[in-house]
């Protein structure tokens, strides 16, 4: 159904009007999870479009923030418990569990912090979901998990959590450079009926209110994330997809080259913020 131009104009005018209420910017709260201090703010290197970058946690209400501070309050952790079971359960034709080959999960420390990762055989970078599926199919002889399945979300949250508190970094040289450029181009390209790019909200207007939503810088250090809107965990690519749908654009697919490129660019753009997986957001 086509929306009349007036409605779109009205939305844009309204957005500007609400923005003029001058949203409060990121707050000053410090994130400490079960005694561990998490870096949610950092200065950026030369050439970065933002001077200081902030985790999305800093833009959320006190009540939302409180749910991430404790590993029981955090509703994502029940999914992590499911992953702990999966880690120890034999699967596929191999009859092996993740534990049988990998041992304890802390071997995964640092993996999430450096995603997406270059896969020389495929000739392109991969998200964590690709890596998990490659392993369970090749090494366990199991069926691959769907991107948003409870199993994949639980496992990527569990593996991601092993990098919690580590600064997000991504390889930017060699073959990754081209993908980061691709991601950057996507970030600044207008899409959809509302004809907006990621940058319009997350670079030009972060800290302001869009209606009653407090705009963040769109950082990815907390994914997979428990979102109240989803009433559950969801992947980064789901969030990308949702954002595109909000702009009335046809979203790229989970695991697509476009989303992996965007992920690579955002990993660079948020470099230095600590991983918060699994984070809690709006």
């Amino acid at each position: 159904m086509r929306k009349p131009l007036i409605a779109i104009g009205g939305f844009a005018a309204a957005a500007i009007a609400w923005a003029a209420i001058a949203g409060p910017g990121p707050d000053d709260d410090k994130l400490v999870i079960d005694g561990v201090e998490i870096t949610t703010e950092t200065e950026t290197p030369e050439g970065h479009p933002l001077d200081t970058i902030y985790s999305g946690w800093r833009f959320r209400s006190d009540e939302t923030q409180a749910l991430q501070v404790d590993d029981f309050e955090n509703p994502a952790l029940v999914a992590v418990e499911y992953a702990i079971e999966l880690w120890e359960t034999p699967a596929g034709t191999s009859g092996k569990s993740c534990k049988d080959c990998h041992g304890d999960v802390d071997i995964m420390k640092g993996l999430r912090a450096n995603m997406p990762r270059w896969n020389a055989d495929k000739g392109k970078p991969e998200s964590l979901e690709h890596i998990v599926n490659a392993s369970i199919t090749a090494h366990q002889g199991a069926e691959p998990w769907k991107w948003e399945s409870p199993e994949m979300l639980a496992m990527t949250a569990y593996i991601g959590m092993q990098s919690r508190g580590m600064p997000m970094t991504v390889k930017t040289d060699g073959p990754m450079a081209e993908w980061i450029e691709k991601g950057k181009a996507l970030y600044y390209t207008r899409v959809g009926q509302l004809d907006m790019a990621c940058s319009h909200c997350h670079e030009d207007n972060y800290g302001l209110m869009i209606r009653a939503d407090h705009l963040s810088q769109g950082m990815i250090n907390g994914f997979p994330t428990y979102r109240f809107k989803w009433q559950g965990l969801g992947s980064l690519h789901r969030r990308f997809s949702g954002c595109m749908k909000n702009i009335r654009a046809t979203p790229y697919k989970r695991g697509s080259d476009e989303f992996v490129a965007l992920e690579a660019y955002l990993a660079w753009r948020g470099g230095g913020l600590d991983i918060e997986t699994p984070a809690v957001r709006n």
Binding site: F72, L77, V78, A79, E81, Y82, P150, G232
Partner: peptide, 10 residues
Amino acid sequence: MAKIKPRVKV
């Protein structure tokens, strides 16, 4: 559907 799993802190 995702597994229904209880969790308690005592």
